[in-house]
Amino acid sequence: MIELDKVTLKYGEKEILKQVSLTVRDNTIKAILGPSGVGKSTILKLMLGLIKPNSGRVLIDGADITRMKESELYTIRRKMGMVFQGNALFDSMTISQNLGFFLRENLNLPENEVIRRVTEQIQFAGLEGYENQLPESLSGGMRKRVAIGRAMIFKPHMILFDEPTAGLDPVSSKKILSLISTLRHNNNLGAVIVTHIIEDVFNVADCVAVLYQGEIIFDDVTEKLHNAEHPFIRSILSDKILEL
């Protein structure tokens, strides 16, 4: 379980997050919805301990990570997989090298086990035949699937998605969303999806938190979003995509 407890974060004089509290339970998909530049991706980085809040606590399975050293955080981070907005694949490595990189780097596994896990992820992401290609030769949707496969490589409990369908064509977006649903149903995984596309929320999320001007203005099951009365939520429900 991931908990943000009254988290405040400032960049210089600007307050990005104001006393944000949020809970993501295991085996649920939670979406964080909000306009661009509001601090949604920052929340994912806080959950991974990549950045530290100015005040408040971030708890992963009850452990407060805000005071942990970087070396202690590495163990915690392996409980979660992260799919970055731009995928963050290593561009000089092939797809199978990208998938196997962190296994070779961080776990003392025999090479045949590494190959088995990489093959498993290649099959899951539907990338058979592309193992030896570089990321630049793949389409945006395929790169995203590689990134999801990489996020799954440590068999985490939770995956964090940063704008998983941003910049993808409708077909690729649909594939990615169905992949996320498959992960949840077949692997019993929880997920946090940061997005500005409201349709994605209704397609995959069990619950949703809406971030607006640094504050959570809605946090409940997705179905109840239709009944929310906040003017911002009313406006996004009518526009569907946040282009703010």
Binding site: L50, Y74, Q85, A88, F102
Partner: peptide
Amino acid sequence: ISEQIDALRAFGTDPVAK
């Protein structure tokens, strides 16, 4: 800028050591 260094940290590799 392509978040590869964040990715290293996120997956448990020390980017300074690597």
